[in-house]
Design a binder for these strands. Sequence first.
DNA 1: TGAATATTTCATGATGTCAAGTAACCGGGT
DNA 2: ACCCGGTTACTTGACATCATGAAATATTCA
Lengths: 150, 150
Amino acid sequence: MATPHMTRRPDELTLEVVDLIGAVVARYHEEYDGAAAEHALTGAQARLLSLLSLEPLPMRKLAQRLRCEPSNVTGIVDRLESRGLVERRPDPADRRVKLAAATDEGRRVARSLRESLRFAREPLAGLSEEERLALRDLLRRMLGVDAQDH
Amino acid sequence: MATPHMTRRPDELTLEVVDLIGAVVARYHEEYDGAAAEHALTGAQARLLSLLSLEPLPMRKLAQRLRCEPSNVTGIVDRLESRGLVERRPDPADRRVKLAAATDEGRRVARSLRESLRFAREPLAGLSEEERLALRDLLRRMLGVDAQDH
DNA sequence: TGAATATTTCATGATGTCAAGTAACCGGGT
DNA sequence: ACCCGGTTACTTGACATCATGAAATATTCA
């Protein structure tokens, strides 16, 4: 019954936590891709569209955010554009740049996608508010986020 | 006090936790794929090889674990087999089944892969043992894991 | 024998990298 | 001012991987 025994090797506990995080990662992806599929989007398309639903971005910036090559972004934007969810605009300040922007339809799909993401509810439903606060603080520290703000 | 109120709409705190989890997911993938790339493996190959480093598995079982189609597993195992990291064996109990098993070399690569995964160390380094215990319990509850064992 | 299962093959599409090409910006020189 | 070389942004092409689905083969099981 989970007595807090001294771990002679601190690795034991750490490994278990890492495994649990692996499980969270798997579940997160499962649900994200599932929600995307409900809108006939792939995971990559859903991520890109979500980014653009906040603000238009140049292709180069998109590649940086998605951590992939710019040539890859071209294809993903092409497919979203052919479905009317995204459009390319010229950047008045620099004619080399093309700004990718979500269309009205694209923003609507992105909103629907966000709402159909159950991950916000189900896994956290079993946790009380205090526990969520504790989890938030632990995750922040884990990620090295400055816990300064708020 | 932490009233298990009905989920009306995900509140501020929940959304922040979900965002943090998203950040963890992103970082986990980054490091996992990076570690795989150091061994000239793709993410999918690394996952499959890690599974096989524990025990041989039939192709069908592999597909279930990886949550993909069996026809997809064929290709991934093909590539690992052509590099001598995995081999196919007949199942004496059922001649339809082929067991995929890691070779000695494959197990060695899998061990090295696991050790080069910094995720176990860096992000958790800032947490004390007590905090790791708390994080473990919260993640377990989040995932609905039976807290029976250990 | 006939239905169900395990694996592979094939066709197809999405994703990803890399190298090469085009267009546009930029910062000197003269 | 002008051109000129270097850099930057994006696209295109070739290619490998990953993923699905349908069809083919071999085997098991009722």
